[in-house]
Design a protein around this nucleic acid. Structure first.
Lengths: 129, 129
DNA sequence: TATTTGTTACACTTTTGATAGAACAGATAT
DNA sequence: ATATCTGTTCTATCAAAAGTGTAACAAATA
């Protein structure tokens, strides 16, 4: 699992960390039941403060991606609230697509991009889910 | 054109304003060549400070959605840098889809959502663009 | 001339992001 | 038992971002 913070990005470190972990889960580089490095290990590895990692883990817990276990650390545990997930996705997607539409990105190009990304996530094994 | 700030949102006011204007352009409620209300008018109307509106307009200018004219104000003028737009869309889409995949949102559901949003933007008149 | 435009400058407050050190209870392994 | 690890929680500090307020300026307009 490659985790790297872009210290020049304008995105907050804890947001970058959250997104990369979520991408890791989606691409199955981290699997359900696996534990993330402890806040201190992770902090050392990627070069940021323990409390910043802790904040990222707390957000991931709040959003239902991990559960925090005192003995095992942050364990990937997906809380499936699909209705809520669909609502949030729609809100975010609306803004992303609106930007694209303004820049003449076509419907077909978006569909192709979605397929391409989905292939990366599931490796083509997502006929049902 | 309905513009409203959610004062309870954790999203910055100027980001909310940017997104709503972009949505307005995408849905053609604001058309190319039209001018947005002046920073002072807009500030009065939606109940935030002039400088915050100015910041939003500056960001929209920077991102190529409007041009700022001393006499006419902020005029919708789309600077089409499609390659850049596609790159940014891909980055943002990756995170949005990853979240969805973790929550069992299917490829088909995403495609349907994209179609639905595109219909809202272009009213079904986007076979070519 | 008076008004409106974007623009800029200075000042100020509040919130957020990030870091730091320290301590605690619970769990674990030696 | 001891030492070590876990998340967690304090207090503290610093910098940057977000937002507001007042004021002024040049350019354009009516």
């Amino acid at each position: 699992m490659i985790l790297e913070i872009d210290f020049n990005s304008d995105e907050a470190y804890y947001i970058q960390l959250c997104n990369q972990i979520i991408l890791g889960i989606a691409t199955e580089r981290i699997r359900e039941g696996e534990a993330l490095p402890s806040v201190r290990q992770m902090a050392d590895r990627i070069g940021i403060n323990m409390h910043t990692v802790n904040k990222a883990y707390s957000v991931l817990k709040q959003e239902g991606f991990v559960k925090l276990d005192r003995r095992r650390g942050a364990v990937v545990s997906l809380d499936i609230d699909k209705i809520r997930a669909l609502e949030e996705m729609r809100r975010e997607l609306a803004v992303v697509l609106a930007r694209g539409v303004c820049k003449n990105v076509s419907r077909q190009e978006v569909h192709e991009m979605v397929d391409d990304l989905f292939d990366r996530f599931t490796g083509g094994m997502d006929q049902n889910s």
